[in-house]
């Protein structure tokens, strides 16, 4: 319990630091938003006027405190460019990004678990070497390149799947999933390798355990040993990684949403970057940090499910 509280404190501090740094980066440096709004050939007076209007003349720390307080009360500010409420803009788009991330993570796990098990079963064996080589090729192929190749083959060449677009779930499950397949696959084809390697390393160690020898001594099949006896105790690092990977995936969705024209938070952020819409940028970064922190809390909970020693601790001191 103490541990959880300590962790929580730490996470709050982290969020504080993240918001502060973001805010300072965006607000202290020259070329502030007033110039952007006023346009290229506006006079200094016009810029000053806009500054006045937006309250940009007040001390940075006060503005920071105001903004952070706003975050807690649901007032994340309003875009200078589109007049959209930042919180609404993010929460409207987040489910789309979330779906993309979840699909990518599921695909990555579907690739990583069997591959990791095959690799760990006979380290340096033929299967391990083939999978290792594929994994090397896979990490050497960043998601934006994979996306281009997938679009070229599956959309332009074969015409099986759309190259861009998004359909809400209300249009039907398949309608919704179809345009998500290539984007999710683009992300998964990189992410699976990291999951696979982590699982492989841990499973190689687990397979040396006495209880695996006992399972073999009981006459259990290799498949059963891998799936029932070894997989669970081997997945702790991988689960931790799923949480840490949220940061990477969020980064990945930015570029993938851009390529496939998916209206998610990543696209919002990129658009804000191109238009230098600072308040939206601030909001997105904060939101990403929040998402990351939450994901890692969920990982802690997943541990309890995986490890009965954690699960039953309450009842046994």
């Amino acid at each position: 319990m103490n541990y959880l509280i300590k962790r929580f404190q730490r996470l709050l501090i982290v969020l504080g630091v993240v918001t502060l740094i973001t805010f300072l980066l965006v607000n202290v440096l020259p070329g502030d938003v007033a110039y952007e709004i006023a346009g290229m050939d506006s006079s200094e007076e016009e810029v000053q006027e806009i500054r006045e209007e937006l309250g940009l003349n007040r001390p940075v720390l006060i503005r920071y405190v105001e903004w952070v307080t706003g975050i807690f009360t649901g007032d994340w500010g309003t875009s200078y460019i589109s007049d959209e409420d930042v919180w609404e803009a993010i929460t409207d788009r987040f489910p789309v990004s979330f779906e993309l991330m979840i699909l990518a993570q599921i695909l990555a796990l579907l690739l990583a678990i069997p591959a990791g098990m095959i690799s760990a079963f006979r380290p340096n064996g033929r299967g391990d070497r083939i999978i290792g080589t594929i994994a090397f090729a896979s990490v050497s192929m960043p998601s934006f390149m994979t996306a281009i190749l997938l679009i070229y083959f599956f959309s332009l060449h074969l015409g099986w799947l759309p190259a861009t677009g998004y359909e809400p779930l209300s249009e039907g499950l398949w309608q919704n999933l179809r345009p998500m397949i290539l984007p999710a696959l683009s992300l998964a084809l990189v992410e699976w390798t990291i999951l696979m390697r982590t699982l492989r390393v841990e499973m190689i160690a687990v397979l040396q355990e006495n209880y695996i020898a006992l399972a073999r001594a009981k006459g259990m099949s290799n498949l059963r040993i891998l799936l029932v006896h070894a997989l669970r105790p081997s997945s702790f690092s991988m689960i931790t990684l799923l949480g840490l990977q949220v940061a990477r995936l969020l980064g990945g969705t930015i570029i993938i949403e851009q390529i496939f024209g998916i209206p998610g938070v990543g696209r919002l952020l990129i658009h804000a970057v191109y238009t230098r819409d600072f308040i939206v940028i601030q909001g997105c970064v904060t939101f990403f940090a929040l998402a990351f922190v939450t994901a890692n809390f969920l990982v802690d909970i997943a541990y309890a499910w995986l490890d009965p020693r954690v699960r039953t601790r309450g009842a046994h001191g």
Partner: peptide
């Protein structure tokens, strides 16, 4: 086996 602490699957 020798060590019953490690010979049973903890999960």
């Amino acid at each position: 086996f020798q060590d019953p602490m490690t010979a049973l699957n903890p999960t």
